[in-house]
């Protein structure tokens, strides 16, 4: 190694050290709005999502949260895990409550982020009407669904988000029926059909998740993000698995990361490279799947992923 390149290297190293220090300082200053002490299960994917939502949204935000795991684990009176103003009123109305907040803020002439948070039950099923209504009314709010693919707070019952063949307490595996019969609702597209920004996100792709929250909050009117949130007890996975399973969901194409903006689809990472079996076999909820069923899941995933990729390549306005 000649002297010149050594100098260059040292200089670079110095620069890098400075950068790291800067980043560290920034991190220290970074706001934490969802803090430790909550009662979520160890390794809960949704709790990780909450932390990042609160952090990126920042202090100038009001949260309307639906009944469900995240509300229940974070607001045990007289304690709270939230350093942001937060309201919980019921299960099906996070978007309607947020509508009221949006209207009040408009009246008070305040510019504050309004974020509604709900589980898949509070989004795909019981909360769907309020969500659709609030979007149609063009309320200025961001709706984030933490999608753990079942009603977890009540003990793992199937929802409109639960994938086919999943074993839940209301879609149990039996001799005749192998878990849930129906496919998962294509919620981000259903929301996108209202004409608003709609995106998927993952706790394994944090910079993408952060960027989407920031981008969404900058758009006036309604916007929607669905973040996959592995649930240790509901998915029957290891406490240390949430991030890895989230990554596998993207890599297998089961939960692709995409955005629908101005009616046009954009696949953020075209990295589908692994068979669905790698994802399914890591989770107790899919333990019972036979080869034929795995093939069926693979076929469905290929089909949906292919469609998203095509739409992304073609850049046609679908909504």
């Amino acid at each position: 190694m000649n002297g010149y390149s050594k100098m260059k290297r040292i200089k670079k190293l110095g620069q890098a050290k400075k950068e790291t220090k800067k980043i560290r300082e920034e991190k220290l200053e970074e706001f934490e709005g969802f803090v430790s002490g909550h009662n979520a299960c160890a390794g809960c994917g949704a709790a990780i999502a909450m932390r990042h939502i609160a952090r990126v949204a920042g202090r100038n935000s009001i949260i309307s949260i639906a009944t469900g795991c995240m509300e229940v684990v974070s607001t045990s009176y007289p304690l709270t895990a939230w350093k942001l103003p937060l309201i919980h009123s019921a299960f099906e109305n996070a978007a309607a409550t947020a509508s009221g907040i949006d209207a009040a803020l408009r009246h008070l002439n305040k510019k504050t982020n309004v974020i509604a948070i709900a589980g898949d039950g509070g989004t795909f099923d019981i909360g769907f009407q309020a969500l659709s209504g609030a979007i149609e009314r063009n309320q200025n709010f961001l709706f984030i669904c933490y999608d753990n693919e079942a009603y977890m707070n009540t003990g793992i019952q199937r929802s409109g988000s639960t994938p086919r063949f999943t074993e839940t307490t209301t879609s149990p595996y039996g001799r005749v029926l192998h878990g849930k019969l129906e496919w998962k609702k294509q919620m981000p597209f259903i929301v996108a059909a209202h004409g608003c920004y709609s995106a998927t996100a993952s706790i394994a792709f944090l910079s993408d998740f952060h960027a989407k929250i920031k981008k969404a909050l900058a758009i006036p009117g309604p916007k929607f993000i669905s973040v996959l949130a592995p649930c240790t007890i509901g998915w029957k996975i290891q406490n240390s698995d949430a991030i890895e399973i989230s990554r596998l969901a993207v890599q297998t194409g089961i939960f692709p990361l995409y955005e629908v903006e101005n009616g046009t689809v954009k696949l953020n990472f075209d990295i589908k490279s692994r068979p669905v079996s790698e994802y399914l076999k890591r989770q107790g909820r899919f333990e019972h799947l036979n080869d034929r069923e795995i093939r069926e899941v693979q076929k469905k995933v290929d089909e949906i992923y292919g469609r998203i990729k095509n739409l992304s390549n073609l850049q046609i306005k679908i909504f």
Binding site: A96, T97, S99, G100, S132, G133, R137
Partner: peptide, 18 residues
């Protein structure tokens, strides 16, 4: 102009809470 009475009361709750 909400989409149901359930949401009417929810919106009142959200606003009144502000």
């Amino acid at each position: 102009n909400v989409e149901s009475e359930h949401s009417a009361m929810s919106a009142c709750i959200g606003a009144e809470a502000c």
